[in-house]
Structure formats: C-alpha cells, structure tokens
C-alpha cells in the first residue's frame, strides 16, 4: 500500500504554488512535510485530501492512477485528513464524535426503518479502537469540551485513523499543545503507522518532525528541494534546507527516477 504524487503542479492565476512535486508515502511509514510559510505545504495537503485539484501531474495509489475530485472521493481511496480545527462537536460525547457520519444503526426493523442508533455497539467499538491505539482518553462518555487540547487531538487522530485504510494526513497536530501532550500525540502517530497506515506529518515543530518521521520532504517555494533520512538529521541541518542555506544535489536522484 502506498500513495505517490508524480510531477504535481498547481498554479493560482499565474503564480506557481507547486512545481513538479514528487512525493510518496508507504504503508507503516511516517513522512514529514516541512517548509516555511508559503512553501506550498497546505496546497499539497489540499490536493492530497481532494479539496483542491492539481493543474497538472497525478496521484497514484498502489500503482493505480486516481483522481481526488472531492474529499469524499479521497476518503473512498483510503486517504483521510485531520485539519487543525479537528472538526469535533464540543457538546457531544466521544462516542458521537467518533462515529460522526458513520453512525451504526440497529439491526432489524428499528434500524432499517426507524433509523435507531445502536449505541452499545458504537460505544464498545470506540473503546476497543481507543485501546488498540493505546490512547489515554478518560472516558468515552465525556463531552469533548471537557477534554484537554491533547485529548481532543488524540480523539481526532484516532477517529481518522480508525476509518482510514491507506494514508492519514496530519496538519500541525502538535502545534497548540503542551510538552507532555505533544509526546502523547507523537506516540499515537507512531502507533498509527505501526498499524500499517502511511502517515503524512505536516509541521513547523522541527523537534517533533525529527522525533517521529522516517523520511522528510522539504518544500521550498513550491518545489521539493530535499528528501532526507530523518535518522541521520539534526534540527539545524533541517532548518538549513528549509531556509535554502543548504542545497541538496538532487540531479543524481532525479536521473535515477527517470531511468526507472
């Protein structure tokens, strides 16, 4: 299972937001996507999640070319996104939020005709999913407004991960959090990847990117300027790539790709 972006470009009225971007994520891998403001991170995120169409280039899922016309189509191809606003309903409990849009109905007439919810089934599914991802939510019956910022982020990621089959896009998941909560969310991201999902991690927090990612792509002025192995990287070098102080020679790699 993999998701690949080939030669994606996107222009907005003559301005090149993305130029010939190549990018990929494999199952079980956490890939970082970093870059300064205006580098094209959110444009790429929107294209991957189906909210925006590329001007040229294409997306390939498991070797098959796909077109994400809407976020719904992207989800059908197993690609889900968690945005910074989290899309949670504060006055509803964890169970309701987890199943938003995917509510389970009772079997038999009460479900098919009267659309009655099967709350016990929903509740136990949430409990088992949260346990599988080893999350630390206090209770599934608590209203979301009574959860901490980290717990809300945890819920949003766990929800998306549970319904996601291929790739999970995370937009700045640790930015608004305290230190301990950041650590919890990073552990959760690792566990999501271990469950066989490819994770794309978009962040400004270099420390977090280095802590959790396997590979890191650096976007600069709409181009991928570096693809880096996170294990042999420090924050200073990474920032060097982001600001353009360090330049990766990508000619040999591009040559390799072309000959493949």
């Amino acid at each position: 299972m993999s998701l690949e972006v080939r030669e994606i470009s996107r222009t907005f009225g003559g301005v090149n937001a993305l130029s010939n971007v190549n990018f990929d994520v494999k199952a079980g891998e956490v890939v970082g996507l970093v870059g300064d403001n205006g580098a094209g991170k959110s444009t790429l995120l929107k294209i991957l999640s189906g909210a925006l169409q590329p001007t040229s280039g294409h997306i390939v899922a498991d070797g098959e070319e796909v077109t994400f016309t809407t976020p719904h189509v992207a989800r059908e191809h197993g690609v889900s996104a968690v945005y910074q606003d989290l899309a949670l309903a504060p006055q509803r409990d964890v169970v309701s939020n987890f199943f938003l849009g995917k509510e389970v109905l009772r079997t038999g007439v009460s479900g098919t005709v009267f659309r009655r919810l099967d709350r016990p089934a929903m509740r136990s599914k949430v409990i088992s999913e949260l346990a599988r991802l080893k999350t630390n939510l206090p209770s599934v019956d608590v209203e979301v407004r009574n959860l901490s910022g980290g717990q809300r982020q945890t819920l949003a990621i766990a929800r998306a991960a549970s319904w996601c089959e291929r790739v999970l896009l995370l937009d700045e998941p640790t930015s608004a959090l305290g230190v301990a909560q950041q650590a919890e969310v990073l552990q959760l991201i690792t566990r999501v990847a271990e469950s066989g999902i490819g994770v794309i991690f978009i962040s400004h927090q270099m420390k977090d990117v280095l802590a959790v990612c396997d590979r890191i792509f650096v976007l600069r002025l709409g181009r991928i300027v570096a693809e880096l192995d996170a294990r042999e990287l420090d924050a200073e070098t990474l920032i060097g790539y982001i600001t353009g102080a360090i330049v990766q020679d990508r000619s040999s790699e591009n040559l390799e790709r072309n000959t493949l």
């Binding site: 976020p71 949670l88 309903a89 504060p90 509803r92 938003l100 009267f114 659309r115 919810l117």
Partner: peptide, 27 residues
C-alpha cells in the same frame, strides 16, 4: 424517540454543535 434515539436526532445535535464538522464528515 427521533431526537434521542435515531441517527436523524444525533445529526441534528451535531449540525448545531459544529456545522463544519458535519459537512466534513460527508453528511
């Protein structure tokens, strides 16, 4: 019954609580 037990009721609460989340969920 409709408001407390059915999917319609559930989504009515959700729509009032966070309309964007409801749209995002494909409803």
């Amino acid at each position: 019954y409709v408001l407390s037990q059915t999917r319609f009721g559930e989504r009515t609460y959700m729509l009032g609580d966070n309309p964007d989340a409801v749209v995002r969920a494909g409803i």
